[in-house]
Design a protein around this nucleic acid. Structure first.
Length: 428
RNA sequence: GGAGAGGUGGCCGAGCGGCUGAAGGCGGUCGCCUGCUAAGCGACUAUGGGGGUAUAAGCCUCCAUCGAGGGUUCGAAUCCCUCCCUCUCCGCCA
């Protein structure tokens, strides 16, 4: 959510941002609503002031034993007009708030301007795609043959777009999660959090998943939402709080399952575990002072990169353009891992800074100095990284011609020393 | 699921129809006192929004806010209704 003042004071800034995003939004209607809101507010406040004054006179008259009846009648009359104005104000305000809630963030100046994915800027590549003497196979073939990914079983248990890790596959994903959490907590200074997987409406509003993206979410019959990412609980950790400047920056990391309906993705990535309704991810999240945002985001991206480097997975870093960026961020960097079997770059981490866009919605503030006025903090987050897609990338890049998969060195201690996943047939 | 208690400023806590945006305390800021520290004394110390004034800091003024929403009333922190949350006890349970 942007500061509503910007609508009145710098509408051209908003218009420019919307243009850059290629976003269809009726800014003029919003500006008009804002003006109407202010007019009504002034009228309502003047009438309230008048009524308050009369009420005081009533009290005084009654105390002195006089007849307050005429005053009361006037007050009732004012109240009638007031009620009409108040009703219209509430309507206007409601529509205004709704539009504000659906107004996207303003991209930073350094974000490349573009229309689509095609215009994203690849900043650099790290590592070499592995070479094979044969045509490398996709992860679903490898996983099923090794008996470590069970798509059919998951379909029976739940439905389409689910996957189940079995045996060494389950251990591998658990190892990845532990390795990532250990790295971020012990080496990068993050505090580990194990949050609820359900969140209330308010929290999803805070991260701006609601009201605009309700279709992407699973909702329970009790009105809870399944979290689409740990960003939701983590960003709301300090909802409504005023933090002390000395406590910032705060770094959190969390492993959670993530649930997404993938409503708009029919027919896309239907093979394998690229796009599933439940996946597992280690998230990085920071609360920082306004001036620290870009610098801290840079460190956060590097913290995520460390994981891919340690696993020796080839990846590249992409600066998302204005047209491909999400609704909430003002800047996003994606990390894409190369997957030999599918021969494609796959998003494995998305790191975004939001400025005060989310903090405003969550009402999370801090005091720059002990007695100073509270200001909105800045938030940012990124995957550090998605465990399911990392597993997939390991299967595709570490596959051997005989159908086995070598375990990256750093994971072996987490897998009881296992160095290679063999087919079940070879185990027995 | 059943029964009860409660949600008031940065924190604790009073208030239970008008003089209460809110006593008192803690914490904090400034000043006085003081060889230093402590103690003592005094002043100030909620948030959001509108309007005016000012180059700005600020100042003046109005409105709203005592968990949220609605109602009663000339007037609500205070009375009524609905909802949310917290706590205690009982039941159930990984």
């Amino acid at each position: 959510m942007l500061d509503r003042r910007i609508i009145r004071e710098e509408p051209q800034k908003v218009r420019e941002a919307l243009d850059k995003r290629g976003c269809d939004f009726d800014l003029d209607a919003l500006i008009e609503l804002e003006a109407r809101r202010r007019d009504l507010l002034q009228a309502v406040e003047a009438q309230r002031a008048q009524r308050n004054q009369i009420s005081e006179q009533v009290a005084q008259t009654v105390r002195e034993g006089g007849d307050a009846e005429p005053l009361k009648q006037r007050s009732i009359e004012i109240g009638r007009q007031l009620a009409a104005n108040e009703q219209e104000l509430a309507e206007v305000e409601g529509r205004f708030d709704q539009m504000m809630a659906e107004l996207p963030n303003i991209p930073l100046d350094e974000v490349p301007v573009g229309e689509s994915e095609q215009d994203n800027v690849v900043m650099y590549e790290v590592g070499e795609p592995p070479k094979f003497d044969y045509t490398p196979r996709p992860h679903w073939e490898i996983g099923e043959q090794l008996g470590i990914l069970d798509f059919d079983g998951a379909t029976r248990m739940a439905g389409a777009r689910f996957v189940t890790d079995v045996g060494a596959g389950a251990t591998l994903e658990r190892a990845l999660i532990n390795f990532m959490l250990d790295t971020h907590t012990r080496k990068h200074g993050y505090t580990e959090v194990f949050p609820p997987y359900l969140a209330n409406e308010r929290s999803l509003f805070g991260t701006a998943n609601l009201p605009k993206f309700e279709d992407d979410l699973f909702k329970t019959t009790d009105g809870y939402y399944l979290i689409p990412t740990a960003e939701v609980p983590l960003t709301n950790m300090h909802q409504g709080e005023i933090l002390e400047g000395d406590d910032l920056p705060i770094y959190y990391t969390a492993y959670t399952a993530c649930f997404r309906r993938e409503a708009g993705a029919a027919g896309k990535d239907t093979r394998g575990m690229v796009r599933v309704h439940q996946f597992h991810k280690v998230e990085l999240m920071k609360f920082v002072k306004p001036g620290q945002s870009s610098e801290e985001l840079e460190k956060l991206v590097k913290d995520a990169e460390v994981i891919l480097q340690a696993l020796e997975l080839p990846y590249r870093r992409v600066h998302l353009c204005t047209g491909d960026m999400g609704f909430q961020p003002r800047q996003t960097f994606d990390l894409e891992v190369y997957c030999a079997g599918m021969d494609r770059w796959l998003e494995i981490s998305s790191c975004s800074q939001y400025g005060d866009f989310q903090a405003r919605r969550c009402n999370t503030r801090y005091r720059p100095q002990p007695q100073a006025k509270p200001e909105f903090i800045h938030t940012m987050n990124g995957s550090g990284v998605a465990a399911g897609r990392t597993l997939l990338a390991i299967l595709e890049n570490y596959q051997q011609e005989g159908g086995t998969v070598v375990i990256p060195e750093v994971l072996r201690p987490y897998m009881g020393g296992l160095a290679e996943i063999l087919p079940r047939s070879l185990l027995s």
